[in-house]
Simulated scan of single mutants.
Amino acid sequence: MAGFRLLVGLGNPGAEYEDTRHNAGAQWIEALARMSQCSLRSEKKFFGQFGKVFIGGQECYLLIPTTYMNLSGKAVQAVCQFYKISPQEVLVVHDELDIAPGTIKLKKGGGHGGHNGLKDIISKLGNNRDFGRVRIGIGHPGHASQVASYVLKKAPSDEYQKIEQTIDESLRYHQDIVADNWNSVMNHLHSFKA
């Protein structure tokens, strides 16, 4: 079957992390759930907020791990095992330091680029890197030593708006993204700038 069955938005749980740069992936899934009129519920066996939704006639699972970021793979692994989902059918939405706020990129496979959520998912999927990624640009603080505090802070309002616009724009194409019709949307999304 073509397309992604499990859509995962990365972030940290708790009010203090809401709307921080590191939670951009979770925001994307929350927005998709609202659009699809799907209520995400806390699901202990999946270590996260979980929901089922039909996108383009296909049943998909939405997941926001409620483990901390560096344990995201535990939640992804639990859902994959339960529903027999292969790594190739997983789409992970996450914040990306290497691209500017207001930009978004789609990618399949690759390394973790130092992202602790991706690192844990890769290891829990048996070192399989073949899942899809929606990378939401948050920009880089300029020095590696500043990354940890930078991702856990809220972006200034102009940057935050750009991140939100990027999420909104990409969600206009959510059916193509989920169905893996990336060729039709990649050119537009990769050249989009909020």
Rank of each mutant, 00 (worst) to 15 (best):
G110D: 08
S72G: 04
C80N: 03
T103D: 08
A78Q: 04
G113A: 09
G114Q: 04
G110E: 06
G126T: 02
E89Q: 11
C60L: 10
G126Y: 07
S149M: 13
I138H: 03
K74R: 15
Q88R: 14
H112P: 12
S86G: 12
G117I: 00
D95G: 10
S157E: 15
Q77P: 01
I121C: 02
A148M: 14
I122S: 06
K124R: 15
P87F: 07
S145W: 12
I104F: 14
P65S: 07
V90I: 06
E59D: 12
G102H: 06
Q88F: 13
S145N: 14
I99W: 04
K108V: 14
T66N: 09
N116P: 03
G73V: 08
V93G: 05
G73M: 06
H143M: 14
I121P: 02
V147N: 05
G73F: 11
R135W: 10
A144R: 15
K108F: 14
A100T: 15
S72I: 02
E89N: 00
G137D: 01
I138K: 00
A144I: 15
D95M: 07
S72F: 00
Y83T: 02
A144V: 13
R133V: 09
E89Y: 03
R135N: 12
C80W: 06
Q77W: 15
F131G: 00
P87K: 05
P87Q: 08
G137M: 01
K124F: 13
G113N: 06
A78H: 09
L125S: 01
G142F: 05
V76S: 00
H94G: 10
Y150R: 12
D98R: 05
R129E: 13
P87N: 07
I85T: 00
L106I: 12
L62H: 02
G111T: 06
Y150Q: 12
N128Y: 09
I64Q: 05
K124W: 14
Y61M: 14
H112V: 04
T103V: 07
I121M: 06
A75H: 08
G73L: 06
S72M: 01
S149P: 03
L125V: 01
I138D: 04
T67I: 08
G137T: 08
Q77F: 15
K119T: 01
P141A: 08
L97N: 04
G102V: 06
P101L: 09
R129Y: 12
N127D: 13
L63W: 08
G110W: 03
G139N: 01
Q146F: 11
K124L: 13
Y68R: 03
L106D: 06
L62E: 00
Y61F: 15
E96C: 13
G73W: 13
N127R: 13
I99L: 09
F82Q: 08
T67Y: 04
K153I: 12
Y150V: 10
V90S: 02
K107G: 10
H115I: 00
A100Q: 15
N116Q: 10
I64K: 11
L91N: 01
Q81T: 14
S145Y: 11
V92D: 06
V134G: 08
G110N: 05
N116M: 05
S149D: 15
L71T: 07
L152G: 07
P141W: 04
A148N: 14
A78G: 03
V134D: 00
D130M: 11
R135T: 11
L62W: 02
L71A: 11
A78D: 03
P101C: 14
I104K: 03
G73H: 10
I104L: 13
